[in-house]
Design a protein around this nucleic acid. Structure first.
Lengths: 270, 270
DNA sequence: CGTAGTGTTGAATTGAATCAAGTGTCGTGG
DNA sequence: CCACGACACTTGATTCAATTCAACACTACG
């Protein structure tokens, strides 16, 4: 049942011509898991990670009925914008997204990144409006799940209700970790933690946990971590000099995961 | 239906003998809303703010059945500790709480404060373990809601399911605001925003939005906002000098709410 | 091919942390 | 009721991590 023969490489990424660079982010191969296929939940390779988890065959079919598989989004397209009426949550099928808010006067602040199998838009549930804008970072595809229908179906399927509570609870727990990260970690600790986080999220979808392409800019990372672009760049360079990682543009290789973990763990030992 | 005759003053707080100081935090009067009364949800003065919202009479009764009203907690007592098995969520009936994590090596970091009518413990839903410890900041009482029963009841009462989704969604949206606050606000902006947040949370439970007692220490505030005690102290003094607030120990008076809002709004105007 | 966006690196500046030395407040037990 | 000790808070002087400012290199795309 575990994913061994899962694709995800075998094609070039971002137009890079070097065939060894078949790492990270979703492939454009179009063979088995293309962006735009009308895969059903039952046949989706993410179904063990996404909403269908813990549902049985017939339940998955019912979920399938309410999922809308929209056309893929081009890089930079918005899924929704701040203050739009909340209608749906979204599951990332391929590609990646960032959420951000515009801080009143001008520039935005990134509040989250979303990789395949992750759920977007739960911040709008309470207020019935999205509290941030969400934009694709590359060519991406998503499943739209109209929330009112999800609620209705959750009412019929206790498994789904349970699982959606868990997904939301997970989001809450994750946000609290970020709170701790932002309130007490140094720039280097934040960056190391961020890379480790990405690593395990890639591992979750059976991509390499040690070698991947960053879908976001340094500036996005900085906004997310509460640092400036310059600081992010400097830290990455310094982590490379220290031998923890190998950076080449958006390409990242984690060479010493335990070393990175150690950086994060050794926070404020006083 | 709106709360006008609600108590909340008329008694002394924290042993202070000056009768004019009948502000903030819950009263120990024991007249109508004491800490330890076995108030039913139907008769609880918080029922419009807490879980029962949007439930009808018979539904509230069913909710009532699963709520456990434990003995009050003394200042400093723990509701649960990090890594305890997750069993229940809790609604604050009176008093206040803080959640914190112990950062591996030593000292903690505060992740949240909870006032009457607010729900504690949702971070444990996904992992089945609480991801932080939660401790009362003063003599407090809570309602315990065993989560498995809440789930079961939510399945029977669509209103409750809907509302609990909303509560969790609200938590997520709130956490994201804090993310923005921590990643881009200055010390003064964070502090102003914190005070305004407390103000509206007190207003929500019909306490004065301009005059209240801080249930937490400067150090708690600092940990929560990612600042040191010294900085918090300095900022409060400086806000007082500028005429925005009046501070006396734990007693706070917001003298210029719009001024404070302006401090928060004028973030990074570049 | 040129241009806008993205990323790097260096030097100067600064906001908040740290270090240090106090005062104030509260709860306890004599 | 007062004295004591522990903790909470304040204020000042100094330091430092990260920002800001500035200049430049790289890349990618129309």
């Amino acid at each position: 049942m575990n994913a061994t023969g899962i694709p995800g490489d075998g094609a070039l990424v971002r137009g890079n011509r070097d065939p060894k660079l078949t790492i990270g982010t979703d492939a454009d191969s179009g063979k088995i898991c293309p962006h735009n296929a009308n895969v059903s939940c039952a046949s989706c390779r993410l179904n063990e990670l996404c909403l269908p988890i813990a549902l049985n065959k017939s339940e998955i079919h019912q979920l399938d009925e309410i999922v809308e598989r929209n056309r893929p989004l081009k890089k930079g397209e918005h899924l929704y914008r701040q203050n739009d009426a909340f209608k749906s949550v979204y599951a990332v099928r391929s590609g990646s997204f960032k959420s951000y808010v515009l801080s009143d006067s001008g520039q935005g602040r990134v509040t989250g990144f979303f990789l395949p199998g992750e759920i977007i838009g739960m911040d709008g549930i309470a207020s019935k409006r999205y509290s941030n804008s969400t934009q694709s970072l590359e060519h991406s595809s998503i499943c739209e799940i109209p929330f009112s229908q999800l609620e209705k179906l959750s009412h019929e399927l206790p498994n789904l209700q349970h699982h959606f509570f868990a997904i939301m609870g997970n989001e809450i727990a994750k946000d609290q970790q970020i709170h701790t990260l932002l309130s007490s970690y140094s720039a280097e600790e934040r960056t190391a933690s961020f890379l480790l986080g990405l690593s395990s999220r890639y591992a979750r979808v059976s991509l390499s946990p040690t070698r991947f392409l960053l879908p976001m800019t340094r500036s996005d990372i900085g906004e997310y971590l509460g640092l400036t672009v310059e600081t992010v760049s400097r830290i990455l360079t310094s982590l490379q000099k220290k031998g923890f990682i190998q950076v080449n543009n958006r390409e990242i290789e984690l060479k010493d995961i335990d070393g990175l973990r150690h950086i994060v763990a050794s926070c404020s030992s006083s």
